[in-house]
Design a binder for these strands. Structure first.
Lengths: 181, 181
DNA sequence: AACTGATGTATCGTCCTGATATATCGGCGA
DNA sequence: TCGCCGATATATCAGGACGATACATCAGTT
């Protein structure tokens, strides 16, 4: 779900759906694509759960100037419960924090995450990708000569990418260990 | 859909669902994950479309020895129409051949694809990733100093990955141009 | 005054994911 | 010989995501 990214962005400032989407696209870019077809239902679910609510429209009385709250624009903000819930989400680690999407969204809000949790997530992700790389490596060693040129290229590129990510994670982990500020 | 990978694997040999999934997992590994919940419905759709059909169960008459077709095992094979349809699929290029999933599945069957089509797909993919990288690069140039350490790392890693893929594609394109055999 | 492109909310059909249920096979130890 | 277990094998369901599309309004241009 879009739980973490939505709550995270709203924790910085109230915002409406369209803006939320723009920010999420640039924030997560490569890691996550999503559409209005998932954004608006998510907003409604989060609202039903009580984690976000809508800012009342500015009512725009006669002659009101300067108030640019366009009719139909729904501005969402984090509730107190939402704030708590978001903090709790950032403090828990599970297997879903290690897959592409979960890891990307968590990393995007690492600045608000406790250092020990950051470390756990990085280690878990590293283990996940390492396993993936080793699986590819051994499968490649077994079947290399049976593969055509293109399949081979595909697998080798995948393997190199995985290895590169492990190295990258190692750097992040080391930095984290050095200065858990 | 799983149209291309299923037809592609069945074009090599008849197979049942479980085996199909195993092969697909190792073949596409990083590029594509999928579950039985998508595999079996896909098989049924392809069967309804007439692209594949089921090998009749071996009937196992009295005393039959050696026939190890276990009851309940459904072996699928490509029909003549399916063979044609698969060839047609490999001969057409569209925007969906440039995204992660579409590109991965097509690359896996490049050995059976015409050289000019291969080149078109590689060029299209390259353009797609180049745009993505440039977008990231300019967004990064604009917002670099406003990003926290982790978001910055995330974006830079994404950018490097994209740049690396472009270089990889360039190699594939050059090889293809040199010897379109 | 009309056009155009960005802003903004919303829904629909089609499909996928993750979990779960069910059953059979082959091998192993008791 | 029997039962157990992990791998093999098919199938379905609830929840939800994606891509397309529809429909407005706003801001700037011509």
């Amino acid at each position: 779900m879009l739980e973490i990214p939505i709550l995270g962005l709203l924790s910085e400032a109230p915002m409406h759906g369209y803006e939320l989407r723009k920010r999420l696209s640039t924030l997560l870019g490569a890691f996550r694509a999503f559409s209005y077809g998932s954004l608006y239902p998510s907003l409604r679910r989060l609202q039903e759960a009580g984690w976000i609510d809508e800012e009342p429209p500015v009512a725009e009385p006669a002659g009101g100037f300067g108030t640019r709250s366009r009719r139909g624009k729904r501005v969402y903000r984090l509730t107190a419960e939402g704030k708590e819930h978001f903090a709790a989400l950032l403090a828990e680690v599970g297997p879903d924090a290690y897959d592409d999407e979960g890891f990307g969204t968590r990393l995007a809000f690492f600045a608000q995450t406790r250092s020990d949790i950051r470390l756990q997530i990085l280690e878990g992700r590293k283990q996940r990708i390492t396993e993936q790389a080793d699986g590819l490596r051994s499968s490649l060693a077994r079947t290399r000569e049976r593969l055509d040129r293109y399949t081979l290229q595909l697998q080798e590129h995948g393997l190199e990418s995985a290895d590169r990510e492990v190295r990258w994670l190692n750097e992040l982990i080391e930095t984290e260990r050095r200065g858990p500020n």
